[in-house]
């Protein structure tokens, strides 16, 4: 297997806070990697750096062998990096269908489609996530569960190679969380995705991820198989007072 994502010595400061501190890791094609860590550990910032929302103060990001450190967000999306948000960010004044349609039209493969074909493809993705009935509802009127699904549908509609999921289960009840987790596992198999998945619910990450990265105060403190990582003393220490590992 070849490495799809290679992050080297990545650093991002906000004033006095070093949100991401000299982080290096690789993700291979087809892997599903969990990213965990206490609140404020720097997980979201790391995703923001990889997706191009922020540019790093130091370090390098390579995607399929290409240096993308200085690339714009839209260029990275076109290369195949898609993401979801801890706080869903869809376009509230557009319907669920239009939100997904927008992703298809923006993506590289959308250039070859007619408006009708793109519309049909958007329906396909909505259906995949059980949102068909909500197609004409404004995204701003959707419930949090539906927003999480819509974000996944939109991300998938870009036909990404790498999907970055930032807390897909936050704010959901256990049944909804289970459904989302099943869907992520399903799309990963069906669409041949590589996934980096941030989650607070460790049980889910332990079950779904083949590898887990642990961050604490901006640093990467562990990288390995889930069952090995949770036994590491520094990981247990990081989580003391946070939650049960």
């Amino acid at each position: 297997m070849i490495e799809m994502l290679k992050v080297s010595n990545l650093t991002k400061r906000f004033g006095g806070i070093i949100a991401v501190n000299d982080v290096s890791f690789e993700i291979k094609k087809g892997e599903i990697v969990g990213l965990i860590g206490p609140n404020g550990a720097g997980k979201t910032t790391l995703v923001n750096l990889i997706s191009g929302f922020y540019s790093p103060d130091r370090g390098k990001i390579e995607f399929n062998g290409k240096n993308i450190t200085k690339m714009r967000m839209d260029e990275r999306a076109k290369l195949g990096i898609a993401r979801t948000f801890q706080n869903p960010r869809v376009i509230p004044n557009m319907t669920a269908h239009m939100n997904v349609l927008y992703a298809i039209l923006g993506s590289e493969h959308g250039k070859e489609l007619t408006m009708t074909e793109a519309g049909a493809e958007a329906i396909y993705y909505l259906d995949l996530f059980g949102l068909l009935k909500k197609r004409d509802v404004l995204a701003g009127d959707l419930a949090i569960y539906e927003l999480r699904l819509l974000e996944l549908a939109r991300a998938l509609a870009l036909r990404p190679k790498l999907l970055l999921v930032d807390e897909a289960m936050a704010g959901l009840n256990p049944a909804e969380a289970e459904a989302v987790s099943k869907l992520i596992n399903r799309i990963r198999n069906e669409f041949d995705l590589t996934i980096m998945w941030i989650e607070h619910v460790l049980k889910v990450i332990m079950r779904s991820a083949e590898r887990v990265l642990v961050m604490h105060y901006g640093r990467l403190i562990a990288d390995g198989k889930p069952e090995e990582v949770v036994k590491k003393p520094e990981v247990i220490e990081a989580y003391i007072g946070e939650e049960e590992v």
Binding site: D74, I91, Y102, G106
Partner: peptide
């Protein structure tokens, strides 16, 4: 009715979401 027309109508709604879906804002 056209793809580019749709994209142009969508960009001003959310600059960030536009970049996210690969649109050169």
């Amino acid at each position: 009715k056209t793809k580019n027309g749709f994209i142009m109508r969508a960009i001003s709604q959310d600059m960030f979401a536009s970049k996210l879906v690969g649109v050169n804002f």
